[in-house]
Design a protein around this nucleic acid. Structure first.
Length: 424
RNA sequence: GGAAAGGUGGCCGAGUGGUUUAAGGCGGCGGUCUUGAAAACCGCUGUGGGGCUUUGUCCUCACCGUGAGUUCGAAUCUCACCCUUUCCGCCA
């Protein structure tokens, strides 16, 4: 949610932001109009309320019954007027909020200007430690099927397209990765949280997934429950409507959750393999910081995500997203892509974003610099650390051997329980 | 799913239609006293919206779980809902 004061005082900043994102700036004018109407109606209704409050007190003290009844009749009319104004006010406020809540965040000036994802900027490429193979690497769906660790057919039997079953070492590899990543996050200073996988609609809203991205979410038809599309959603509201003290900041969290996405936007894309499923696992990093510290923790979070790939020995690159590719809530985002030689593709395994106060404003997360000081909104940051299926793809494809087996990366061996996967 | 009790400020807790401008206490902050601290005493101490010939120790509105209603006036009365706790039932 953008600050209404910013919209009033510097509407051109918001218009420019929308243009940079490739969106229509027209809603800004609609919003300013609604805001002016809101304040006009509010002023009139409050004046009448003040009058009624005052006269009501007088009525309570009056002795003369005739005068009393006259005042009562007068206040009945005032009451009707207030009711009319307030129903008008509610309508305007509903529209205003709907419009403002659909505005995306203002891009950071450091986000490169661009028209599409083609304008994202590669800021660094880091070579992994693995020797290049002397054979043509297979894609992970071949490796997984041959080893019997990924069962696409039974996934489809149970739940249809974009689902799969992991068998034995496949399941253990994923579970080991999750446990290892959570332990790594802890060493890096993040506190682990186990979270609800279904949340109320206000929680989805606070993270910025509603109202705009309703189509990509699974929703329980009978109750007000939404399946989380990422742990970022419940983490955003972990401190909703709280005022933290300055010494409680920063708060760094890590959480494992499955993620559920309808993928309506990418129907027919990436249907092969495990790259894009309706259900996938992820370890997420999240931070609440003072505004002046968010840049620092953005860099830390990026470095922490990168360390994951370094420890796995994988080749990756870091991209700075251009204004057109930036997520709805984000001001500045780095994507980390890992090289997968089987599918011959850079796979996005992490997205690390500084959201500024955008989500904090929606969720109502504030802090006080010192006792008695006026509460301010915190900044929030989120980063994948990492998405599991794509990390699995990278491991299977990079660590595959000529004989069809897959070496388990050194750091994962205690977690997975084997050095090499050569059969189910 | 059934029954009962309950939901008031950071916390505890009083408050059944108008001196409530939400008592009182705890906690927090500041001060007096003290070499320092404690104790004692004094003062301050919620959030959000709106306004401006005075940006202020300013004016005003809203908020006592949520929403609707009754009333000139609601924390207080009515209705619906939500949540919490305890017990019973079912259950991993």
């Amino acid at each position: 949610m953008l600050d209404m004061n910013l919209l009033r005082k510097e509407p051109e900043v918001v218009r420019r932001a929308l243009q940079q994102r490739g969106e229509d700036p027209a809603p800004v004018d609609v919003i300013l109009e609604l805001d002016a109407r809101r304040r006009n109606i509010l002023g009139r209704s409050e004046q009448l309320r003040a009058l009624r409050n005052q006269v009501s007190k007088e009525i309570g003290r009056m002795a003369d019954e005739a005068a009393r009844e006259a005042k009562r009749a007068e206040m009945r009319r005032v009451g009707d007027e207030i009711a009319a104004l307030e129903s008008e006010l509610r309508e305007v406020e509903t529209q205003l909020e709907a419009r403002v809540s659909e505005l995306p965040n203002i891009p950071d000036p450091r986000a490169p200007l661009g028209a599409s994802e083609a304008d994202n900027v590669v800021v660094r490429e880091v070579e992994g430690s693995l020797p290049s193979p002397r054979f043509t690497p297979l894609p992970h769906w071949e490796i997984g099927t041959r080893l019997g660790i990924i069962d696409f057919e039974r996934g489809v039997k149970l739940s249809g397209t974009r689902f799969y079953v992991l068998n034995h070492w496949g399941a253990r590899l994923q579970r080991g990765l999750i446990a290892w990543m959570l332990d790594l996050r802890q060493r890096q200073g993040y506190e682990e949280r186990y979270l609800p996988f279904m949340v109320k609609s206000h929680v989805i809203y606070a993270a910025g997934q509603l109202p705009k991205f309703r189509d990509n979410l699974y929703h329980d038809a009978e109750e007000d429950f939404w399946w989380v599309p990422t742990a970022e959603v419940p983490l955003t509201s972990l401190h909703a409507d709280e005022i933290l003290s300055a010494d409680q900041l920063p708060r760094l969290y890590a959480a494992y959750t499955p993620c559920f996405r309808r993928e309506k936007m990418s129907a027919g894309r990436d249907v092969r393999g495990i790259k894009r499923g309706h259900q996938f696992d992820k370890v997420e990093m999240y931070a609440f910081t003072k505004p002046e510290d968010s840049d620092h923790y953005h860099q830390k979070m990026l470095a922490d995500a990168e360390e994951t790939l370094q420890l796995l020995g994988l080749t990756y690159r870091v991209k700075l997203l251009c204004t057109a590719d930036l997520g709805f809530a984000s001001r500045l985002t780095y994507d980390i892509e890992v090289w997968a030689p089987g599918v011959q593709e850079w796979l996005e395994v992490s997205s690390v974003s500084n959201v500024g106060d955008f989500q904090a404003r929606r969720a109502g997360v504030k802090f006080r610099r010192e006792p008695g000081a006026k509460p301010e909104f915190v900044h929030t940051l989120n980063g994948s650390g990492l998405g599991l299926p794509r990390t699995m793809i990278a491991i299977l494809e990079n660590y595959q051997q000529a004989d069809g087996s897959v070496i388990v990366p050194q750091v994962l061996r205690p977690y997975v329980g084997t050095d090499r996967i050569s059969s189910p």
